[in-house]
């Protein structure tokens, strides 16, 4: 099954879902798709460029707060507010990435974490914009332009999310198969070599962080009107860790894998939380199991390790145990 046929089939199934699923399941599915978009955006950094970000919640939170403020205070229609929030998140990311790319490796990860926590700390105190610990509540799905109101409904909003996810997936796929994507892979495999080939790797890294933040911001911007609220939890480091789990469990460097990882995360945490109070315990165990025994992720397991076609294998640069 090649990529475009598989994608078309998946899109058809997902498009028919509102007809078959009960409302509660639709809510879960919509959230899973939003998280899928978020996880996929992180995959551009983690899977393709080997930029391990521990602060991707910053993108989500930026998008959510920006979109929430636009919808609450300007009366801007949903269809304009969402892309604008994504754009804003991407622009902020350029500054963040400029600082973070001064370092590399573990220091890069920790800097991203520091920035996300900085945003968290600011959001906690800047009451007029973020509502502090109460957050923003009652975020509307404003209609328009031209009185388009179908996205205000449950099914309509689901289609909006689905369209954003599929559009972003196609965009990312195009991106990673472009010359730009090849340079990213070069950075992943051997940054020094890529640099000596004449590529300004830092500029490429800043660009990929900006794109990842814009798409992550898009996910956050969709979440705010979906949930109707935005709070500081969206910026918390735990959320950054969770999205990283989604990427790894799904399969880093595959784009589709993280989406599946996000769906898996939603499904398992919901099943576990309905069955036991201690879902985090089992979740941690499942996660450790994946890292130990299936580092290629769910998508890697599904598509089989032997097949190279249509799939990107992340070959982590093995850190020799003794170095």
């Amino acid at each position: 099954m090649n990529f475009s046929r598989g994608l078309a089939a998946a899109a058809c199934v997902l498009a028919l879902a509102p007809a078959a699923l009960p409302p509660y399941a639709m809510t879960l599915l919509t959230e899973a798709l939003i998280l899928g978009l978020f996880a996929m955006s992180l995959d551009l950094m983690v899977g393709y460029t080997r930029l391990l970000s521990f602060g991707h919640a910053a993108a989500y939170g930026l998008g959510a707060y920006t979109c929430g403020n636009l919808l609450l205070h300007t009366g801007m229609p949903l269809l304009f507010a969402v892309p604008l929030a994504a754009l804003f998140s991407g622009i902020v990311a350029i500054g963040v990435a400029w600082v973070c790319t001064l370092a590399s490796g573990v220091s890069f990860s920790m800097l991203t974490l520091a920035f996300a926590q900085l945003f968290y700390a600011v959001a906690f105190k800047w009451t007029t914009v973020t509502g502090a610990s109460d957050g923003l509540a009652g975020i509307p799905r404003s209609p328009g332009p031209f009185g388009i109101a179908i996205f205000a409904g449950k099914a309509g909003f689901y289609y909006l999310v689905l369209a954003c996810l599929l559009g972003s997936l196609l965009f990312c796929r195009m991106l990673v198969h472009s010359p730009f994507g090849e340079v990213l892979r070069g950075i992943r495999e051997n940054e020094a070599k890529t640099l000596s080939l004449g590529y300004n790797t830092r500029r490429y890294k800043i660009a990929v962080v900006a794109i990842a933040f814009a798409l992550g911001g898009l996910a956050g911007a969709l979440y705010a009107p979906f949930a109707g609220f935005a709070n500081t939890e969206l910026l918390f480091w735990l959320f950054s860790g969770q999205v990283l789990i989604m990427v790894i469990v799904g399969g880093a460097g595959t784009l589709v894998g993280p989406i599946i990882g996000a769906a898996f995360f939603m499904l398992v945490s919901n099943l576990l939380s309905s069955w036991t109070d201690s879902w985090a315990l089992f979740f941690g165990l499942i996660f450790i199991g994946f890292v130990l025994f299936a580092p290629q992720g769910i998508w890697g397991l599904l598509s089989g390790t032997g097949r190279a076609e249509g799939r990107e294998r992340v070959r982590w640069r093995f850190l020799k145990s003794t170095s």
């Binding site: 391990l52 789990i245 790894i248 985090a280 941690g284 890292v291 982590w316 850190l319």
Partner: peptide, 23 residues
């Protein structure tokens, strides 16, 4: 079991351990 893997594996395993220990 993980010394031959990338350091991200450690970050993730210990993140999982954090969840487990907290619970």
């Amino acid at each position: 079991l993980l010394y031959r893997r990338d350091h991200s594996a450690f970050l993730m395993v210990t993140f999982g351990l954090t969840l487990i220990m907290g619970e």
